[in-house]
């Protein structure tokens, strides 16, 4: 099987029937030998939990965590903006910490607990941070938004945990909830629509300080 290949494949996924779910069929055995060995994909199984649901996939080792989510599990809330760790649109939480899912191989996440934007909240049942982004118009085109929100949730947790930042005045005292702290910590999430000022207001609302 090529592509999405979840063992416990859901009926919905089959019905969706994307190309990713179809078998590849024989791969032109006749011409295979012409290619060098390094072109033959290596398939591997990996199990992790996404938004509380156990998932088992058989994947090309080259599959990024981001593509596993978007193409194989069809969880397209996590976005591909650059695929090189330069924009933050793919931000997800792994074991509670935010990472760029584009720069991580899916097979490196055996046993991990992954939370994506879909796991934070759904339409009609928004996470408070999602609601704050909506109310403060902390987005425009919406493409960077899931990454911004995942980061925003993680940033407040990082502050709570006392992790310092580039702009913390003191390394030995706990960082404060200043706008400078929030801005610095959010800087790994680019918004070309330029909603930064509104995102700050959304985050300050959730952080418990009036914007």
């Amino acid at each position: 099987m090529i592509g999405g290949d979840e063992f416990d494949i859901s009926r919905r996924a089959v019905l969706l029937g994307g190309g990713a779910l179809a078998g590849a069929g024989p791969v032109r055995a006749a011409t295979r030998k012409e290619t060098d060995m390094q072109d033959s994909p290596t398939m591997m199984e990996v199990s992790f939990s996404v938004n509380g649901e156990a998932r088992r996939l058989r994947l090309d080792t080259r599959t990024s965590l981001l593509d596993a989510l978007r193409e194989h599990l069809q969880l397209t809330g996590s976005k591909k903006g650059c695929d090189h760790g330069q924009c933050g649109a793919c931000t997800v939480l792994v074991q509670g910490r935010r990472i760029n899912s584009c720069l991580s191989l899916a097979v490196m996440h055996e046993g991990d607990e992954i939370t994506t934007i879909e796991g934070l909240g759904q339409p009609g049942e928004l996470h408070p941070m999602q609601a704050a982004f909506l109310h403060h118009d902390g987005f425009q085109c919406g493409y960077c938004t899931p990454g911004q929100i995942c980061s925003a949730v993680a940033v407040l947790a990082e502050l709570q945990a006392g992790i310092p930042s580039h702009v913390s005045p003191s390394l030995t005292e706990a960082p404060t909830l200043s706008e400078a702290e929030l801005r610095e910590r959010m800087s790994g999430n680019i918004c070309r629509c330029g909603a930064y000022s509104n995102i700050m207001e959304a985050m300050r609302e959730i952080a418990g300080e009036p914007a």
């Binding site: 969706l16 994307g18 190309g19 990713a20 976005k79 909240g121 109310h135 987005f139």
Partner: peptide, 25 residues
């Protein structure tokens, strides 16, 4: 508030590359 805002803040608004449902295969 934006009427499509709930979709955008939950990652449910479908962008071009994400439209698995529109056509199979």
């Amino acid at each position: 508030d934006r009427i499509e805002g709930q979709l955008k803040v939950t990652g449910s608004a479908p962008y071009a590359y994400e439209r698995h449902e529109v056509v199979p295969d």
